[in-house]
Design a protein around this nucleic acid. Sequence first.
DNA 1: TCTGGGGTCCTAGGACCC
DNA 2: TCTGGGGTCCTAGGACCC
Length: 422
Amino acid sequence: MAPVFALVDCNNFYVSCERVFNPQLVGKPVIVLSNNDGCAVARSNEAKALGIKMGVPLYQIKEIIKKNNVQVYSSNYALYGDMSQRVMQTLTQFSSEMEIYSIDEAFLDLSDSKGLGFTEYGRNLKNRVEKWTGIPVSVGIAKTKTLAKLAGRLAKKSKKANGVLDLSSSKYLDRALESVEIGDVWGVGRRYAGFLRSKGIKNALQFRDADDNLIRTKMGIVGLRLLNELRGISCYPLELSPPRKKSITVSRTFKKEIESPAELLEAVAAYVSSGAEKLRREKLGSGVLIVYVMTNRFKDDYYYNSVTIKLPVQTNNTAELIGYAQEGLKKIYKKGVQYKKAGILLNDLGSEAMVQANFFDTVDRARAKKLMQAVDTINFTMGSGAIQYGAVGLARNQNWKTAFNLRSKAYTTQWDHLVEVL
DNA sequence: TCTGGGGTCCTAGGACCC
DNA sequence: TCTGGGGTCCTAGGACCC
């Protein structure tokens, strides 16, 4: 039987999360910022209507914010992560087969749904998620994921659709495709959109009916898959279990530029700690560690350098990884440079249980593992960062530490942040 | 003054081997 | 002047996503 997909997409997700616990924000222009309160990464419809674009730096919209009393928030990942789980949990009731695609999106398999028509199904789903979690969602339904994304986008925009659009067997499919600008097609980014426009292909309908060879030469196999998906031939099945991670990265822009090697070391040690914790959570070990540093990329004298360290044995031991990172950092540190960002990458990931032993290995791995388990347990029960390596430095004087000056409370994950009803 | 972070996939080209 | 051919593996870079 031909598949049918539903895409469920939370509307302006971060903003919607803030509104659940602060209903006064409903109807007002609201934005949520990236790390260090740098850019607008989520916008309410009212904020979009004011012309605030995705990813625009805060300092460029100061005027608009002031004039229109836009409500501004720092990112609150604890809150958004928890709200996301609630939404996904609710969705499991609507299909046995679901793929969590991102923090605010999921694909559902509807091929064996019986009884109700798809539109009514979508409407039920939308109502229940909103009632149970407070998060408004849009639902797009179609024969392929790409078409479901497109339907979802139209569902959100069209007043008539009111949040749910079924294009799985619609006689208006062509008209719907024609109304979607080429750059808004899932998988067509800025570069490809520019190329396609230069060939006279301006919307999804023209793209669907384009010549295969033209698309293949410039966009390769990915482009051809995209064409097929738009033609109703499914190329991307639902991914029921998340594929194993191939890399883990932790990187941050510093609050202020830093120059001293000691501070740089602290930041890198902190990122390594966080990366190692992620490894352990996924029961993985890493065989290659990359450390990189850079200056402000918007300045002329931009400097970037990185070092790749092949580890003797795959590991997720924080102390060991910090040691290698420090060694590596010494090789790429340059004096007199104003660093603005650093990061680490963990590659060559493998299952913790399958680590290839090294004959010359000098680390007592059984002992190290016990220590890491103790550290993780403490941080899990007492709160993240309750215990950490000295290399990370002390909270005061951390000029690199990311700032969130406008953050709301962790309403759902910390007892002392619970909402009080007076 | 102020500009996010974490991922994946594909392709081309070079190194290396037989 | 002429200078094999095919396969595999790895890496860097480009493109995309949220």
